[in-house]
Amino acid sequence: MSKANLTQNNSFLIDMTKCTGCRGCQVACKQWNQLKAEETEFFSGEGYQNPPAMSEYTFTRIKFRDYQKNGQNEFAFYKEMCMHCNDPACASACPVGAFVKTEEGPVIYKAERCIGCRFCMIACPFGVPKYEWSKGLPLVKKCTGCYDRIMEGLKPACVTACPTAISYGPRDEMIKEAEQRISRYPDRYINKVYGKEEAGGTAVLYLTSLPFDELGFKPVTMRALPSYTWSALRLVPTIFLTVGAGLSALSWINHRKDRLKAEQEQLAIEESVNPKEEN
């Protein structure tokens, strides 16, 4: 549905085998977007994870997995953010088109359009859009893909801050790079580029050494989500016309019957009694 050339979309390749969990990205994002710090207590999750979830104040977050597997420690880190889907559910769901998949890659949000129905939040398979619950007239908040930065020739803040794990570039190149890494280091990676097909393809791609479900990735469909609703919605004009025309015809026929009957009756009456005019 978007005009963007999806192969050239700017995409994030996040290699979790290279992520050190330093959370530079998390802070850089807050700094660039001037987001408020959340009040936390101790840790909310495994390892040093904080805050408890992405929110109106937190567009990206490192999730920690701290556990033991076959007697070995696993300490894994994974960056959560908007996936900037090729065919975004949020954009298709929004009644006023406040979400837009840009040609450059980021899925951006036009706050001035938003009416605040939160359907985008229901629609997004990754649970990304968040709401300004603290406000009387709240808006939706989510990772902007640093659209403002990339339009000025910079890379997203989180990418710039990341010492090791994130590459950024055209989607086809990122996929190629990801696949090359898998074939070059087959022992290091699970043979899968997450995001290549998930939800119809996303502009955030992941590589990992641990199974994705173990890392807490939710299972998602491979089909672009908008297609699910569109398969019903595309019938709208047909249904409208069919129902409209059908009922009109039905009632026309019925009323014609009535009318004919009435006329006949009338005629009969007129024939039998010659009516007199009152007044």
């Binding site: 549905m1 954009a91 298709s92 769901a93 929004c94 009644p95 006023v96 088109g97 406040a98 359009r113 938003c114 009416i115 605040g116 129905c117 359907f119 908008p226 609703t229 569109w230 019903a232 919605l233």
Partner: peptide, 16 residues
Amino acid sequence: KGWQVLRYWNLHSPMF
């Protein structure tokens, strides 16, 4: 801004 549904049409949106 509810009225804006009339202004910005998104035919792909069930909500629309």
